[in-house]
Design a binder for these strands. Sequence first.
DNA 1: AACGCTACCAAGCAAGCGCTTGGTTATCAA
DNA 2: TTGATAACCAAGCGCTTGCTTGGTAGCGTT
Lengths: 224, 224
Amino acid sequence: MGDKISLSDGAKSHGAKKGPGGRDRELSTLVATGEVSDPKSPRGRLLNAAAQLFQDKGYARTTVRDIAADVGILSGSIFHHFRSKEEILCQVMLEVTRVARARMAAAVSAEEDPRERVRACIRCELEAIHGLAVPGFPILVSEWRSLSADNQRLVLTERESYESIWISVLNNRPRGAGIADAQLARKLLLGALAHSHTWFKPRGRGLTLNALADQALLMVWQEG
Amino acid sequence: MGDKISLSDGAKSHGAKKGPGGRDRELSTLVATGEVSDPKSPRGRLLNAAAQLFQDKGYARTTVRDIAADVGILSGSIFHHFRSKEEILCQVMLEVTRVARARMAAAVSAEEDPRERVRACIRCELEAIHGLAVPGFPILVSEWRSLSADNQRLVLTERESYESIWISVLNNRPRGAGIADAQLARKLLLGALAHSHTWFKPRGRGLTLNALADQALLMVWQEG
DNA sequence: AACGCTACCAAGCAAGCGCTTGGTTATCAA
DNA sequence: TTGATAACCAAGCGCTTGCTTGGTAGCGTT
């Protein structure tokens, strides 16, 4: 099962190399389709600031005054863009999910080998977790309970396609490669990777992000 | 009086034994030495209530009024036992760590085989995470940032001996058993296990806690 | 010129927060 | 009896919080 991975669009940009110049072609596409707010618009700037603050200080410890100050407006003005503080969190999660999904789809389709695809998923999620793709990804795990049940359902729906990529990639592992159940392997892996946000420093000269990805790969894919 | 005492309450003298080893024996010892508060004392009841509330709702969303109401007193009375709300969190973390450490040490020393010792560690931590040992263990991961730097240092010191058990047990793995570096394996494992708190239901009829431990073992110990 | 729209300011409200204060009760030892 | 102490109540203080209100400046369209 899970031979093909359904990608939303055929036009994908592989590699997503970070460097000087346009960081992600996927992001521009998402902005163009309206799936993600323009980072230069007031709304986009607010969401980016909120994402960074929620990630750094936590949702509850971040005030709307913090967010407002970060983009240079007064706190009351925020509510011309969002109805409530929680809506900000919800929108951050939705947009982060869309960016992460687009990058993940591109990364997977750029690889052929099943094992390389798993590695690509891991590396891709690690990049998201450590802010190389978009700020705010760790919030999806750490601040989940800060959402109301309705908003949880909303984000969960948006997230399904992201997780389904993971599952189909993990299902392409051979027998005996480790944890058999892809759903279980995914959950354990998500916990392990997300937690790395608290201790892994990409700036450090010791372990690189790619090396960490290789080690994490050993958890769900053994043998050669 | 309809007060509910959450866990490990019946150990009046040496009464309650659970399982072959007498699992609450460790708690009684810790209470006797003063390392952990008596669950029947006001302080112990407050700490237990706080631990459960912090775990369920999160530290920031739990008010001192919530904790007080849970044990049947008024909010102001709390501050005859603790100087601040954060001190409650800190004390919860310290005591939870001590209980977890004692249980872990007992679980490890009950096994001889290196692989069984790793499995025992995993099972032991899973039991702690899912409230079978003491309420509040997941707080150690999820609410770490709610502590001031000073209190973080305090808890970290108390925790060292707990982590050192993990490291020595993981270091007894043979070469080629998976992730070579014990420190790294431990961090990834902690993330994976702690995250299971959000999705694993011990009440569920599907995956048992022991089966989950076996699967988690596959992440750090391959080839039987 | 008049309009409509977006983005924002200035001021502040009501609620909830952690925590303080002064006093009361129960227990127990000398 | 007296005094010390632990445990708690009743009341509320000072502050922060998310959010509201009424108004304004700038801009493009008609």
